[in-house]
């Protein structure tokens, strides 16, 4: 198998003020693969994504996308790379002053010379893909949270990107729509050969769409591998995470209730 690396992260360190958020991330992502990033809330997953798309400057380290070191690129070169990238933000990040259709059409209007009629057809196609056909004229404020996320996904794939970053694409969606999003991501991967980096907490969707899984904890990557490799990893955190066990020092539900009743009666 000759796998071609498309994203290479080398010794990435980041600080927010004094907080050391990413502590030496090393990760290689290959062309056409889907990698899922898992980890607890606050471990730095969104921060890692923000670095990959050049929104945050790292404290130190390199982020290469197709061999180009993103933090060091000038504005124009970075724009060229960004045109080939789509990003779904954790909260959708739609432009509130524009309709859904205009949100999706914006990158097409800005970066292509397509006719307005073509753009409107393409926009409708993308919205149909995410199940938002008929909502073109709506403003983001008029949509539910899940709908906003799907509109954000439609905007992220508007330019048919080579690499798609998704920050929790199915969080806050009902199971049926979430399954639909999984199917859509699978289709993008198979039909359009997109490389995808997906942050998610949904184990079912991880196992369905991901070729490899990266486990993060407290700003570090503990392990990267296929589902089997991760499931067989003996690391206690990984086992705890996969089996949805609460932290050891937290009292379990039974004891908690017992303590409570004894407190009330005593």
């Amino acid at each position: 198998m000759d796998k071609k690396p498309i994203i290479e992260i080398k010794e990435l360190h980041t600080y927010y003020g004094r907080a050391h958020v990413l502590k030496g991330i090393n990760l290689t992502i290959y062309e056409n693969e889907t990698i899922a990033i898992l980890g607890r809330s606050g471990c730095g997953k969104s921060t890692l994504l923000r670095h990959m798309i050049g929104l945050n400057q790292p404290g130190s380290g390199e982020i290469l996308i197709k061999g180009k070191n993103i933090p060091k690129l000038n504005e124009d070169k970075k724009t060229e790379v960004l045109k080939r990238i789509g990003m779904l933000f954790q909260n959708g990040a739609l432009f509130n002053s524009m309709s859904i259709a205009d949100n999706v059409a914006l990158p097409l209007r800005e970066h292509t010379d397509l006719e307005e009629s073509t753009i409107s057809i393409m926009t409708r196609m993308k919205l149909d893909l995410v199940g938002l056909g008929g909502f073109e004229g709506f403003n983001p404020a008029q949509l539910s949270g899940g709908m906003r996320k799907r509109a954000g996904l439609a905007r992220a794939i508007a330019m048919d990107p080579e690499i798609l970053f998704c920050d929790e694409p199915s969080a806050g969606l009902d199971p049926i729509v979430a399954a639909g999003i999984d199917q859509l991501l699978l289709k993008l991967k198979q039909a359009f050969k997109m490389t995808m980096v997906v942050v998610t907490h949904e184990m079912a969707s991880v196992f369905l769409i991901a070729d490899r899984i990266a486990m993060m904890n407290e700003g570090q990557i503990l392990a990267v591998g296929t589902r089997a490799e991760i499931e067989n990893n003996p690391h206690s955190f990984i086992q705890q995470f996969l089996h949805r066990e609460p932290d050891k020092d937290k009292v379990d539900r039974e004891t908690f209730l017992q303590n409570l009743t004894s407190e009330i009666s005593g």
Binding site: R50, I53, G54, L55, E75, K78, T79, E80, L82, K83, I85, M87, F89, N91, A93, L94, F95, N96, L106, P107, E110, H111, R155
Partner: peptide, 14 residues
């Protein structure tokens, strides 16, 4: 605050 400016920048719009 709603990350709209980040979204602009990721689209390559300054």
């Amino acid at each position: 605050v709603s990350e709209e400016i980040d979204a602009l920048r990721t689209m390559g719009l300054n």
